[in-house]
Simulated scan of single mutants.
Amino acid sequence: MEWTGQVYADTPTVAAQTYIEASPRRVWECVSDIQLMPRLSAELRSVHWLDEASGPAPGARFAGQNEHDALGSWETISTIVTCEPEHSFAWAVGSPEYPSSIWRFTLRPEGSGTVLEQWTQMGPARSGLSYAIDAMPDKEQKIVFVRLREFESGMEANLAAIKTLMEQEA
C-alpha cells in the first residue's frame, strides 16, 4: 500500500486478495460463516447473531467483541448489507445508512478455483479511531495510514488462513 495522504473523512479503503484452489461454493460457505472470523482475526474475539438471526441474510445483525492493544476492547453491532451466495458478503458496522466501516468479501471464479478479495472502508461515521484523531488532529493522516496498514495486514492473514483451510480440506 502506498502513502495516500487520506484522512478519515475521505472514507479510505484497503483490500487484499488471494487465489484459492476451491470452488466459489466452498469458499462462500467459509466466508459467510461469521463464527469463523474470530478464529482468524487478530482483533475480533467473538461474534453472535442478534434478533433471532441464525445465518447470513440481508438485514441480519450480529454483535462482535473486539480487542486491540492500543485501542482497548469494544463491542460492535453489524448489519449484513450484501449477501449474494458465491459472489459477495458485506456488513456495515454501526448504522447501515451511515456506518463507521464496511467490510466485504468478494468471490470470483477463476479456472478451477476462486479469487477471494477482502475489502474495507473506514467511515463515514466516527469510530474508535476518531478519538485518537481528536487527540492528535495534526497526525490524522499518519493515524489513518497506520490503521489501514493494520487492516491490510489482518486481511492478508485472514485470506492466507482461509486459503490454507480450504486447500487442506480439498
Rank of each mutant, 00 (worst) to 15 (best):
V7A: 10
Y8Q: 06
D10Y: 01
T11F: 00
T11E: 00
T11R: 00
P12R: 03
T13A: 03
V14H: 02
V14F: 02
V14I: 12
A16P: 06
Q17F: 02
Y19F: 05
S23M: 03
S23W: 02
R26H: 08
R26M: 03
V27Y: 03
V27M: 06
W28Q: 03
C30Y: 11
V31D: 04
V31L: 10
D33N: 15
Q35Y: 11
L36R: 14
M37D: 10
R39F: 09
R39H: 14
L40Y: 14
E43I: 04
H48R: 13
H48I: 00
L50T: 03
A53R: 06
S54F: 12
G55V: 04
P56M: 10
P58T: 09
A60I: 10
A60E: 14
A60M: 13
F62L: 07
A63Q: 15
A63S: 15
Q65A: 15
E67Y: 13
E67G: 11
A70C: 07
L71Q: 11
S73Q: 15
S73F: 14
W74D: 12
W74H: 12
T76N: 15
T76D: 15
T76L: 14
S78P: 02
T79H: 11
I80W: 07
T82Y: 05
T82K: 11
C83V: 07
E84K: 12
E86F: 08
E86H: 10
W91S: 02
A92F: 01
V93D: 03
V93I: 12
E97I: 05
Y98E: 06
W103I: 00
R104L: 08
F105Y: 15
L107Y: 00
R108A: 03
E110M: 08
G113M: 00
G113L: 01
V115N: 01
W119T: 05
Q121D: 03
Q121H: 04
R126W: 09
S127W: 09
G128L: 14
L129K: 08
L129N: 06
S130M: 07
A132R: 11
I133Y: 06
A135T: 14
A135I: 11
P137Y: 10
D138S: 12
D138C: 04
E140M: 10
Q141I: 00
Q141D: 06
I143T: 07
V144W: 04
V144N: 01
V146Q: 11
R147P: 00
L148P: 00
R149E: 10
R149P: 00
E150V: 03
F151E: 06
E156G: 06
L159M: 09
A161I: 04
I162C: 02
K163Q: 13
L165A: 07
M166V: 05
